[in-house]
Design a binder for these strands. Structure first.
Lengths: 249, 249
DNA sequence: CCTTATTGTGCATGTTAATGCCTCCTTTTT
DNA sequence: AAAAAGGAGGCATTAACATGCACAATAAGG
């Protein structure tokens, strides 16, 4: 990757996030922190970013890109994604389904990641096409337009032939007692199958969804291996931790 | 190869790729890296590229240059798409594979279209999610990043369970005598199967591809039902028409 | 047809740029 | 205040670069 390209990416990140952390950039762009520091220094000299301890700040207002950016909560989801990335290692077989949070995750994976990704979500597949060392396997089915994932009998049947190291589940609701639930039954069926074919299961969730529930149960909450979230009250955290879930906040 | 020719090619590459690497160019154009460096230096002096360490960047947005035919060809493709739409009726089962021309078609379908579309291309599927009355069935497989389609054994096997009224084939080359061909063998296998499960086959092609050929044959040209193209010479048109192909220009 | 200038190219040379690591120092956090 | 995290500057390594030179191909002129 060219130096100019990398710096362009940093500016692009900064456009969405209003601040960037050097150590995060190092992971995302697969270069050493020293290089990131040099980049930030340069960009600061050009007046394109404001260098601060441990990272850099955006100068001026963000450039609005109508096609992709919707809301501020992106930043929260990006932060969840950055924490989740620590659990993704080279040579894993990953199973990733849909959801905007998962899409943010995929857009922030280290560029050098070497992995096999299985997904039933066209947007996830397309995002992964930027990663040279990631093999993408799409699972077919009937496109469910609300959440942009392929669902149906074919999908479940194909999943029967698969084993994954880590399933990154896009979730809508989670309740420590009842479990993970979802409004759509067909999505629930596919997610349930995905849980059953994966060694570990990771989910990211914003704190406001930590004790909500929908009508279709995907799996009990202790099916999760990792739950990535924001700052939560200690008692809620303990509730999940007691079930053997690795809570990261 | 002439120097000017080579530099023209470099500009052409840059138009599609927004960056070029000197060492890559050396291989692609079969000259030494020194020569490439001299070329890039020259082009930089003329302000046509921005020279950076290890390569060069495009200056400004993609060039609207007639020699590269980038923008023009988009217009042409949209025109082809508009002609092709006449052959798409409500309640059809359509099989659509990848390619920019097909994507243009999908983006210009009537919003009221009521149909079932089967596709192995994530971008096509995503574009179709805007159509309320179109059911989208995705065929899975291994994502082939160059052309953004799912390919492989799974893909072909899934196709065995399908019958379509009309297959809209994205094509690269067609020669009236030899047939439709494509550089990638795995893509050829999938396309061939798609032809065999469809009642009718439609392809759109710009006139400059009307008598070219690649190495892997998909099917004889008379497998086509409709060939949508630009203005072509009467004799060429007759050549295709004599094979029972409905040529539209 | 042969000579000769011109140009483009590849190779050998020393030089510079980009990056990662290391050590020592500074800032931040606990 | 101690510990941890971040940063600056130096050094080493690698890839990319500029330069000079030689050779080949081409074009012009005799």
């Amino acid at each position: 990757m060219l130096k100019e390209e990398r710096q362009q990416k940093i500016l692009h990140f900064l456009n969405d996030e209003h601040k960037v952390i050097a150590s995060d950039l190092s992971k995302r762009l697969s270069v050493s922190e020293d290089t990131i520091r040099r980049d930030l220094k340069e960009l600061d000299t050009q007046g394109l970013v404001k260098r601060v301890h441990s990272g850099a700040l955006r100068v001026g207002p963000p450039v609005v890109d109508f096609s992709t950016r919707q809301n501020i909560s992106n930043e929260v989801k990006i932060n969840l994604a950055l924490k989740a990335i620590d659990f993704i290692k080279d040579n894993m077989v990953l199973l990733i389904d849909g959801g905007t949070t998962n899409l943010h995750l995929v857009n922030n994976l280290p560029l050098s990641l070497k992995a096999t990704v299985i997904t039933n979500s066209p947007p996830i597949a397309m995002a992964l096409s930027n990663y040279d060392y990631v093999e993408v396997n799409m699972i077919g089915g009937t496109l469910f337009k609300e959440s942009m994932v392929n669902l149906g009998i074919d999908t479940v049947e194909t999943l029967n032939m698969i084993r994954a190291d880590l399933y990154i589940m896009g979730i809508y609701n989670i309740d420590p007692h009842i479990g993970i639930s979802i409004p759509s039954i067909s999505e629930a069926l596919v997610k349930r199958k995905m849980v059953s074919v994966s060694t570990e299961v990771l989910a990211m969730v914003t704190s406001d969804k930590l004790d909500t529930v929908s009508n279709h149960i995907v799996c009990p909450s202790d099916s999760l291996t990792y739950l990535i979230t924001e700052h939560v009250k200690p008692d809620v955290k303990a509730l999940y931790a007691n079930k053997g879930i690795n809570v990261v906040d």
